[in-house]
Design a protein around this nucleic acid. Structure first.
Lengths: 250, 250
DNA sequence: TAAAAGTATGTAAATTCATGCAAAATCCCT
DNA sequence: AGGGATTTTGCATGAATTTACATACTTTTA
């Protein structure tokens, strides 16, 4: 077996599985582990793979995560943001939750939109405040550590006093069977109150989060008016999410 | 399973859900909890995640305002912050305004202080939320562009319902003759409401701002309990500011 | 305040790694 | 085809890494 031949096989294996173990390779290629190790060193020196303890990994698999403060799946979230923004019309009262997808929406709102936004998230509020023609109203309350959104009875009370046209919420878990789920009890109650007081509810979520379930249930899918993902609504992965007329996939 | 592979999975999980529990991860990845913990320590050392008791969470979600924004006269503001913090005691209800000096105070609060902070500023709220033992309550309302503080009738109403031990406000103008002044009508009314509902009022200001006057009057100096600057209270530049027993220079 | 959950630390076993060296394979030139 | 140079490979050694477990300690929860 030629060295170059092994290299090709190794590369192929990594492209296929994103990783290889030295032990597997030595069995598969019937050479000593040292040889494999030397192969991996060479490929790594050429910058083709990422050598790690016990084997090697795909570089493409590795790098997207490195960008420190980069938002995960930013491109997908931008697509979602632009789809969501199409729902926004002048003079609407819109209620937004927190999270990185919602932040992306807040940032990308066109400057000529004239609407009023309510939010329970200080981050979202500050992002919204960048736009000249929109009104930002914070629903104040106890600031929940970590998730950084206002929660508690005062928030629920405030929410009950306003009638919102469109409510946009992110999601931690979404599945056919369990519907919308989250892991924080306080957050769940805020989201429920948000949904209760809105004419329309839009849930934004990158496709990756689909079919994941968290511990606490928020609502069934039927309580949602729009589900917005970065995928085409006709995508097979989403087919089960919109059997009836509701929710509508965008 | 390669270590790096686990790291990728953990990062992905965090990016997806903003947080992970060690217990969940050890089940998902089928390794001991020690291994997970070591993984989290490594990722945290690399600055990729934020380790918390019981698991880890997303850093991007937590520290939105990283670096970049330089603060004018930072050293002076730190001195002011440390002086101000001496007024804070456990179990106090403290009300804070917004502004860079106030932000510096919020950041430098010792982690063992157990108190409740109210604020009308989303920035201040987020900075306060970094400390474990303090309660943060946002007084919500219309978010005023540029100054980024909540204003309007709802804020005044809320403020009138709480009795604060200490109110800390920044300043735009302070002078012997005109007292405390500001340039924004809405902000002035919020500050007045803050002062009305506090037992003690502290004004923080870098020395540079002394003897400056803005268009709208907030109050006379006699309505202030403490004036806190970066200078020694005995400094000649301040001598006229504390003729009587009030305000007290710190 | 006690129980439960989570954390830090050290240890030992297993695995993986780096290095030097010699045998084997390959290449290259005549 | 042959011989020397070069490259590649396998092996031995000790070092380093990784992991699970045990233990003691700290934080959180009820």
């Amino acid at each position: 077996m030629l060295k170059e031949e092994r290299h090709k096989i190794i590369l192929k294996e990594i492209n296929l599985h994103n990783k290889v173990l030295s032990t597997d390779l030595k069995d598969q290629l019937v050479v000593s582990e040292d040889t494999i190790r030397r192969d991996l060193i060479e490929l790594a020196d050429q910058g083709l793979i990422l050598k790690v303890h016990g084997g090697a990994m795909s570089k493409t698999f590795h790098y997207p995560f490195n960008g420190q403060n980069e938002v995960y799946a930013l491109e997908a979230k931008r697509v979602i943001a632009d789809k969501t923004i199409e729902l926004f019309k002048n003079d609407m009262l819109i209620l937004m939750e927190g999270g990185t997808t919602i932040m992306e929406i807040a940032k990308r709102i066109p400057d000529d939109l004239e609407a009023t936004f309510f939010t329970v998230s200080p981050h979202t509020a500050l992002a919204l405040a960048e736009h000249d023609n929109i009104n930002v109203i914070s629903i104040g309350g106890k600031l929940l550590k970590n998730s950084n959104i206002h929660t508690g009875a005062s928030v629920i009370n405030e929410l009950n006093n306003i009638k919102i046209d469109l409510c946009v919420i992110g999601t931690n878990g979404i599945s056919i069977k369990e519907g919308l789920t989250d892991s924080d009890w306080e957050v769940v109650h805020v989201i429920k109150a948000m949904m209760n007081n809105a004419k329309k509810v839009a849930v934004v979520s990158i496709a990756e989060k689909f079919n994941s379930v968290q511990k606490i249930k928020i609502c069934d899918l039927s309580a949602i008016d729009y589900i917005i993902t970065e995928l085409d609504p006709k995508n097979a992965a989403l087919s089960e999410y919109s059997g009836n007329e509701k929710p509508l996939l965008l």
